[in-house]
């Protein structure tokens, strides 16, 4: 496992600083408190979604996990999507319902009745790869184009959920919420005291120290 780029950086440490306003605190608090149980999806759909999302954005052991299934469920429950659909695609909720069902059916057909969630990472990735490359289709999918479902729905929705989570911001060294406080030092190689410090080679300890004072 590679070492974190921004060791000890926690964007949540800025929660009570001028970098976060009340509206932001409310929104992120709510996101972090998303119930970890199906509310829109069925239990079966949830278990496929959880395993599936885990392959789209694999979790790291050393970082706080991002509960993708819960976040996806919340997004579908609220029906907070981009609104439009491609002419040959259903709207978001229906696309996910049908897509998850088809993935599960594909898994069962290919792996002797085993559910998608029970497959090895490699088998799951192989199935997803086939979907991404246009190698899936047929009876399980009806008129839903699997490749289009993957590109227009999965790759639009899931990464957006992951990179809306503070844990992901920590990982990539994003400054996170910034209001009313913005930034003074606008150059990239020039960080404000409330920005993530990077562990450049030989300066890991200093980065860790700086990141403790990111407030």
């Amino acid at each position: 496992m590679t070492k974190p780029r921004y060791p000890g950086y926690d964007v949540l440490a800025k929660r009570n600083t001028p970098s976060w306003d009340e509206a932001t605190r409310k929104v992120v608090d709510k996101r972090l408190a998303t119930p970890d149980r199906p509310r829109f999806l069925t239990r079966d759909e949830w278990s496929v979604a959880a395993a599936f999302c885990e392959r789209i954005l694999p979790q790291r052991e050393d970082a706080a996990p991002v509960p993708l299934a819960a976040l996806l469920d919340a997004k579908l429950l609220a029906d907070h999507g981009d609104g439009f659909r491609d002419a040959d695609m259903p709207y978001m909720r229906e696309a996910w319902r049908r897509g998850l069902a088809a993935i599960e059916a594909e898994a069962k057909t290919r792996h002797g009745g085993r559910s998608f969630a029970s497959l090895s990472d490699e088998d799951q990735d192989r199935l997803i790869g086939a979907m991404a490359d246009g190698g899936l289709g047929g009876e399980h999918w009806g008129d839903l184009d699997p490749q289009k479902f993957f590109k227009r729905r999965v790759l639009v929705d899931v990464p957006g959920l992951f990179y809306s989570h503070p844990s992901a911001w920590n990982e990539i060294g994003f400054g996170g919420p910034a209001s009313p406080r913005g930034y003074v030092r606008l150059d990239g190689d020039h960080r404000d005291a409330w920005e993530a410090a990077e562990a450049t080679p030989g300066h890991e300890k200093k980065a860790e120290r700086d990141n403790r004072h990111v407030v």
Partner: peptide, 26 residues
């Protein structure tokens, strides 16, 4: 008061009512 410093929350500013897109380059 209403705007959060958050990409996905601010999706609320966009027109996300239903629409259908079509053509060679939807």
């Amino acid at each position: 008061e209403d705007f959060a410093s958050d990409e996905s929350e601010q999706n609320k500013l966009y027109w996300t009512d239903r629409r259908v897109v079509d053509g060679a380059n939807p």
